[in-house]
Every structure is written in C-alpha cells, then in structure tokens.
Amino acid sequence: MLNSKMLKQFNKAYEDDALKAAVYGASPVGLVVLLYEGAIKAIGQATYAIESQRYDEKSRLVSKTIDIIDGLRESLDLQQDNEAVKNLNDLYIYMKQRLSTANLKNDPEILAEVRRLLETILPAWQELNRSSMSTSTASNAY
C-alpha cells in the first residue's frame, strides 16, 4: 500500500516538518488516515477562502485536496478482484470530478458534499488503524 507515489503526494500536500516526521513514522493505514484528515482540513480551508473571496487560495486548496485524493486512488491495488477496492476507486474519481466542479463554480456546497463523503469513510480507516496498531503492539510483546 505504501509506495513512492503516495509519499510524493504527502510531500506535496504537507510542508510542515513535524507532520512529515509523523507521516514517515506512520503505518500504511495510518498514512491513509492522515491523508483523509488532510483532505478534510483543506476542504474546510477552501470553503473559508470562497467565503472570503480569496479565489487564488481556494484554487490552491482544492488542488491540494485533489492531489491527496489522487494519492489515495493511486495507492489502491486495482489488480485485486475486490469490490471494496473498485468502489473506493470509483468514489475517488467521483470526488475528484466534484472538486473540479466546485473549483470552477466556487461552490461551497459541492465542497461540503465531498467533505461529508470523506468524513463518512474516515472512521472506518481510523478503526482499521487502531486495530492494526493493537495487533502490532501485541505481536511485539512476545
């Protein structure tokens, strides 16, 4: 799951050194959680930029969100015959299209739609991350 394309997306999406350290120390599932959180945060900031009529900043933030979602999509193993992977791929494509539309129309409602989608899926990734961390911790105890 963790690959060089995903790490490049992180480097593009995040410029904070402390966050980079967290990224490089995270598990693959932990990286997905960080990407979701980063996309949600960028959408919130883009919405505020629209409200403030700072359209150049909005464009930068929407592009950042698209880059994050693209990184998530590129990390999927589409060679698997897995319905969940196919559905996530389709959802990421849909979100990218909606973000492009929101960017063109300066539409905070479309941004809110994509944010809700990400916020709906994020808890599942967070739970998977907690489970994998507790399994890893239990394995290291022996």
Score class of each variant (00 low, 15 high):
residue 40 I to R: 11
residue 40 I to T: 08
residue 40 I to F: 06
residue 41 K to W: 11
residue 41 K to R: 15
residue 42 A to P: 13
residue 42 A to K: 15
residue 43 I to F: 05
residue 43 I to D: 04
residue 44 G to M: 00
residue 45 Q to G: 04
residue 45 Q to I: 12
residue 45 Q to K: 15
residue 45 Q to A: 12
residue 47 T to L: 01
residue 48 Y to W: 06
residue 48 Y to N: 08
residue 48 Y to R: 09
residue 48 Y to T: 14
residue 48 Y to D: 00
residue 48 Y to Q: 10
residue 49 A to I: 05
residue 49 A to F: 01
residue 50 I to M: 02
residue 51 E to C: 06
residue 51 E to A: 10
residue 53 Q to N: 09
residue 53 Q to H: 08
residue 54 R to G: 04
residue 54 R to T: 13
residue 54 R to K: 14
residue 54 R to E: 03
residue 55 Y to C: 10
residue 55 Y to I: 09
residue 55 Y to K: 10
residue 55 Y to E: 04
residue 56 D to I: 11
residue 56 D to C: 13
residue 57 E to C: 14
residue 58 K to R: 12
residue 58 K to C: 01
residue 59 S to P: 12
residue 59 S to T: 13
residue 60 R to V: 04
residue 61 L to T: 02
residue 62 V to L: 02
residue 62 V to K: 03
residue 63 S to T: 14
residue 64 K to Y: 09
residue 64 K to L: 04
residue 64 K to T: 06
residue 65 T to F: 00
residue 65 T to S: 01
residue 66 I to L: 07
residue 66 I to E: 03
residue 66 I to H: 08
residue 67 D to H: 10
residue 68 I to C: 00
residue 68 I to V: 03
residue 69 I to G: 12
residue 69 I to C: 07
residue 69 I to Y: 10
residue 70 D to L: 11
residue 71 G to H: 00
residue 71 G to D: 01
residue 72 L to F: 01
residue 72 L to D: 01
residue 72 L to S: 03
residue 72 L to W: 02
residue 72 L to Y: 07
residue 73 R to K: 14
residue 73 R to I: 10
residue 73 R to T: 09
residue 73 R to N: 09
residue 74 E to Q: 13
residue 74 E to S: 13
residue 74 E to N: 09
residue 74 E to Y: 13
residue 74 E to C: 11
residue 75 S to R: 03
residue 75 S to F: 03
residue 76 L to D: 02
residue 76 L to S: 06
residue 77 D to Y: 13
residue 78 L to H: 15
residue 79 Q to T: 13
residue 79 Q to Y: 15
residue 80 Q to V: 09
residue 80 Q to A: 10
residue 80 Q to H: 15
residue 80 Q to D: 05
residue 82 N to F: 09
residue 83 E to C: 04
residue 83 E to V: 08
residue 83 E to A: 06
residue 83 E to R: 12
residue 84 A to M: 07
residue 84 A to P: 08
residue 85 V to G: 06
residue 86 K to S: 12
residue 86 K to E: 09
residue 87 N to V: 04
residue 88 L to A: 00
residue 89 N to E: 08
residue 90 D to T: 15
residue 90 D to H: 15
residue 90 D to L: 10
